[in-house]
Simulated scan of single mutants.
Amino acid sequence: MNYKVRSIHADEWPEAKALRLAALQDPVAHLAFLETYDEALARPDSFWQERAVGGAEGSSGAQQIIAEGPDGEWVGTLTVLIEEAGTTDWAGFSVERKQGHVVGVFVRPECRGIGLTEVLFDAGLEWAWSQGAERVRLIVHEDNGRAQRLYRKVGFAPTGVTVPLAQASGESELEFAVVRDAD
């Protein structure tokens, strides 16, 4: 595999924006992401700049990790957010211990099935553990079987926690997590 996996740099916001927009055009984007292509496209450049700074190499609260193809094109990404014990998460649940939260997972279709996603997850977990996370979690739509299979493959397991989406929809998402191995 001739790909480079690394954290983004703050000045790479245009590339980060382009990859996010590509992700939001995926056929299962409505199950995988909490925003639409049109919503993301309407955001000002300042939003993308701030987002890149917050997830860039050297940041301790979040890290956006990308995979670059042989020609330098960004072909995959995931972001790990750090959630501190004693805080409340985006869904209103209490965070009981310091943990990572994986969001924004995407690999371009032509690069799927070659092990790239596993390498992205390895890098994301390594970063979360280096920040003192005791576990890393992610939230996946109950109907997104493709993502659930991938998450199991990279070591995540369902925790039994269900996160309801908009009440009118009756849909929910499932929490998956992995706990750091004792050294």
Rank of each mutant, 00 (worst) to 15 (best):
R135W: 11
T79V: 01
L120V: 03
D71N: 15
I66N: 01
V53N: 05
I82D: 05
E126F: 06
A147E: 07
G72E: 13
E118Q: 11
N144G: 11
Q99C: 13
L120F: 02
A91M: 06
S60P: 09
C111V: 13
V80M: 02
G72L: 13
D89M: 04
T87F: 07
G100S: 07
R137I: 10
G86H: 02
A85C: 03
F106D: 05
D143P: 11
A133I: 05
T77S: 15
E83Y: 06
R152C: 12
P109F: 07
E73M: 13
V105S: 00
G115D: 03
I66E: 02
G76S: 03
V102E: 07
G69D: 10
A67P: 09
A123E: 05
T77H: 11
R137W: 12
H101N: 15
G72C: 12
V140A: 15
D89S: 08
T79H: 05
P109T: 07
Q148T: 11
F93Q: 08
L81M: 10
V103T: 11
V102Y: 07
V53H: 06
N144S: 12
G124C: 00
R135L: 13
R108W: 05
E134M: 14
G69R: 07
G72W: 08
I65A: 01
W90Y: 12
L78G: 05
T87G: 04
